[in-house]
Design a protein around this nucleic acid. Structure first.
Length: 525
RNA sequence: GGCCCCAUCGUCUAGGCAGGUCUAGGACACCGGGUUUUCAACCCGGCAACAGGGGUUCGAAUCCCCUUGGGGCUACCA
């Protein structure tokens, strides 16, 4: 997002490159999700997958297939700047443990002599792992000039020869990004602070490859979550695990069924042995009625946040425009964006403030746009309101002034289109509003007045209800609340006058009758 | 453990680079009050911070050092 803001500000190009060199983690769906998320946020790339451009292909896996990295590996090998290694994972593990026992940082020990072709052939024939490591120049200090942090020095003796080509033939991130940044003529590398330690190595590689002038490095602060560490995808499964444990291990079988997993898998998950895929986690949470913290962009979408809110809010974590503005449009953000105003310290993701931002954006966004977002939202959460037409939806949105999320609007409006038999009466609301005191009696009076009305507008309904309240010598709430519970089952809905107008006369009367019939025998004195 | 980064209200931050104008500003949260047909929204008011210790200086939130605390990296992950 910051790369995009910066490119837009400078009139440069924003390139989307998919760094999918880890075969274990990167799947087509994950890639698609990233692109969907970006597009939902309104972040369009000038070059990249599905868009094309002069610097493609844009998937590192595809670039690897085309042999783009081969020549660079060979060049380093030929110049003795890189060498083959045959260590197994176990051997490396032992080396690390030794270093730890000596309370020293692990630095790979370079062999006295680099393996020759024959040895490589032999190792390959033997089926053991063959990797290529970069021989880090032993020249003392590497200085990274970082835009936010100034000059950061590293002792090259502590960097250690890192792997640039894995045994599966894929380049590592640290190697591929250097080659690709050069080939794609990347001018600014804007990324999280977690990459700062990678930079001296990348810089050294850049020089060893003879790529010339370095790109500008910009390491931004990390956003941490309430629980401490950096915001991570793991938080969702962790939250679910906690919730299942709290349930006391009951219903594991049903849970597994709901998630489409085996009981063993769920058990292993609860015991912390394994983590199922996100869709499984999501459906189990839905089944268990557990609210998981939003982590991925799509989670926020499903919770009813606007893309405008997310871009605005996220941009203000680790950056600010230098004046007192907070609620800003994407256009205002790109106009104001400035690398020098990036914050150095980490920031905490505050959901309360996010909600406040969303409330504000719902208030100021253009009506048509909001309607569009609302319809998108209704689709993903499979709301009964998908059946409603634009006119009705717009009315609902307008009546729901002050809503915090799209979920608010949906929740308060859905009763309008729900079939009568699907209205769920909230027990607490029924007791408090209908059964106690004059509730049902007031409802009968409301019903009678309503049935006599010819013009069924929110204005006329308001006049009637206010008049009735006065007549009975009570506050408006005494007549409005029973009506509200009668038509929607709860005490939370759109404003009552608009609600009744939207429901229309016939439906309103029928729901009142249903309610009276259902609860009159239960009335308390 | 090693290396690196960071440090202003509970949170996001302004101010710091060009020390005095900072009795430290804003926003969110919180607390009190108002408005009110529910939930929200809205209006008014309030609480609340320069992590600690040394320096430098006439003067330090601002510059330097140490301590402490937080975070990151320490992978054939990115």
């Amino acid at each position: 997002m910051f790369n995009w803001l910066f490119a837009r500000r400078m009139g440069g190009k924003f390139i989307l490159r998919i760094e999918d060199t880890d075969q274990k983690r990167n799947t087509p769906t994950a890639r698609q999700q990233v692109m969907d998320d970006l597009r939902w946020l309104g972040i369009e790339w000038d070059e990249g997958p599905e868009v094309g451009g002069a610097n493609g292909p844009y998937l590192q896996s595809e670039r690897k297939e085309k042999g783009i990295y081969d020549g660079y590996v060979k060049k380093l090998l030929d110049e003795q700047k890189a060498y083959y290694c045959f260590d197994t994972a176990e051997e490396l593990q032992v080396m690390r443990e030794e270093a730890e026992a000596q309370k020293k940082g692990f630095v790979y020990t370079r062999p006295e002599r680099f393996p020759d072709e024959k040895e490589v052939e032999k190792a390959k024939a033997g089926g053991g792992p063959v990797t290529v490591r970069f021989a880090v120049p032993e020249k003392g200090t590497v200085v990274v000039r970082d835009v936010v942090r100034g000059e950061v020095s590293f002792d090259s003796g502590e960097i250690g020869d890192f792997i640039i080509l894995k045994s599966d033939g894929f380049p590592t991130y640290n190697f591929a990004c250097v080659v690709d940044d050069y080939l794609m003529k990347v001018t600014h590398v804007i990324r999280g602070q977690e990459h700062l330690m990678n930079t001296p190595g990348q810089q050294l590689l850049w020089e060893a490859l003879g790529f010339g002038e370095l790109p500008n490095y910009v390491h931004m602060s990390v956003t941490v979550s309430e629980s401490g560490g950096k915001l991570s995808k793991r938080e969702r499964p962790t939250a679910l695990r906690k919730a299942i444990k709290a349930m006391g291990g009951a219903g594991l079988k049903k849970l597994a069924e709901a998630g489409g997993a085996t009981v063993e898998e769920v058990k292993g998950f609860v015991e912390g042995k394994a983590t199922p895929d996100m869709p499984i986690v999501d459906s189990m949470a839905k089944y268990a009625g557990v609210e998981l913290p939003e982590i991925n962009v799509v989670d926020f979408f499903r919770s009813g946040y606007l893309p405008e809110t997310m871009v605005n809010f996220l941009s203000l974590l680790g950056w600010n425009p230098g004046d007192k503005r907070e609620i800003m449009t994407a256009a205002e953000l790109t106009e104001a964006f400035d690398l020098t105003r990036l914050t150095k310290s980490n920031s905490l993701f505050d959901r309360d403030k996010l909600i406040a931002f969303n409330t504000e954006h719902i208030k100021v966004i253009e009506g048509e746009r909001l309607l569009g977002h609302f319809k998108d939202y209704l689709k993903v959460v499979e709301s009964p309101l998908v059946a409603a037409d634009d006119k009705l939806l717009s009315k609902m949105i307008r009546a729901c002034e002050g809503a915090r999320t799209l979920a608010d609007i949906e929740r308060k409006s859905r009763f309008i289109v729900l079939a009568d038999e699907r209205i769920e009466y909230d027990e607490k609301a029924v007791k408090k509003v209908l059964l106690k005191g004059e509730g049902l009696e007031a409802l009968r009076a409301v019903r009678e007045k309503l049935s006599e009305m010819e013009e069924f507008t929110h204005k006329a309904i308001e006049d009637m209800l206010r008049g009735l309240a006065e007549e009975r010598g009570v506050g408006l709430g005494k007549v409005a609340q029973p009506l509200r519970v009668a038509i929607c089952g709860t005490t939370i809905s759109l404003p009552i006058f608009e609600s009744v107008e939207m429901l229309a006369k016939e439906n309103t009367l029928r729901r009142i009758d249903n309610t009276i019939e259902k609860f009159e025998t239960r009335a308390e004195i």
